[in-house]
Amino acid sequence: MKTIVNGFEYFSPKTLEEALKMLSQYDSEEKEFKVIAGGQSLNLMMKQGILMPECLVSIKGLSELDYLNYDAKEGLKIGALTTHRAIETSDEIQKNFKVLVEMEHNVSSTETRNYGTLAGNFCHGDPGGDPAPVLVALNAIIKMASVKGERTVPAEEFTLDYYETVLGHDELLTEIQIPVIPPNTGVYYTKYSQILGDFALASAAVSITLDDKKEKCTDVRIVLGSVGSTAMRAKKAEEILKGKKITDELLVQAGQAASEESDPTDSVEASEEYKRELVGVLVKRVGKEALERAKKA
């Protein structure tokens, strides 16, 4: 019942260096601060009184982090301030990473996508977030920085638990790197929500790589969203497909395996059992589309 937005201090550094220094200083002073980018998730948490930081450090002014760079060899580099909308409307991404555009199209409404950043979404660590399963399926690398220096981790290792990531308190996510999609590979993502653009009841991203004859599956990644404490790989389901010629029947089996591996909970919207069943259907359907794409790739 609380809507208290208690008073807080607000800082907006102009450069990455300045920002990192600020974070390091507040961290050592044990100040309760939060980084804010588009505020699409943080504002809600503050409005509901779940978070009540003494101080906000806005990174919106760090224009050096607002970029999208594509290179045919190096792949895609997405600066931390890139909005959902910028990704959704980029021709280069549409051409080379169509699945990202498809994913973005159903992240909430245009208004939210205009403000919210891909990096902010990932840092928020919501297991219902759409980007995480896709980033994991695409083997993305996450680059972070603090005054102590830079480091990277695979997207798969970035999120630890509900709303918890490997980010240090004084660290910023600076860049999301997505390697070029390997040859003979198809990637697809779908979420299901009764209302378009709503948070998913369950979602699945599947990446399938075929051999040069386009017969057998040499590599596969199946990632589930909204059905666990983080986006999760369905490894048993992957094993069912790996090394095989993928048929509709195998996809059904993979769906069943993923359904068992998933770990959903009851909610107002649907029961655990329903969500498990949904996972099975989604994996089957998304796997089929990924396979078609791999064949055409």
């Binding site: 809600l44 409404s109 209302i195 378009l196 653009g197 107002v268």
Partner: peptide, 28 residues
């Protein structure tokens, strides 16, 4: 018909926010 629901637990409304109370949107 489809989605607006007011479930309660012993009189406590379980979805008292625009996030949790589902309303058909323009796209739907």
């Amino acid at each position: 018909c489809l989605c607006e629901d007011m479930p309660n637990d012993n009189g406590m409304l379980l979805n008292p926010s625009m996030n949790d109370y589902k309303i058909v949107r323009q796209r739907d």
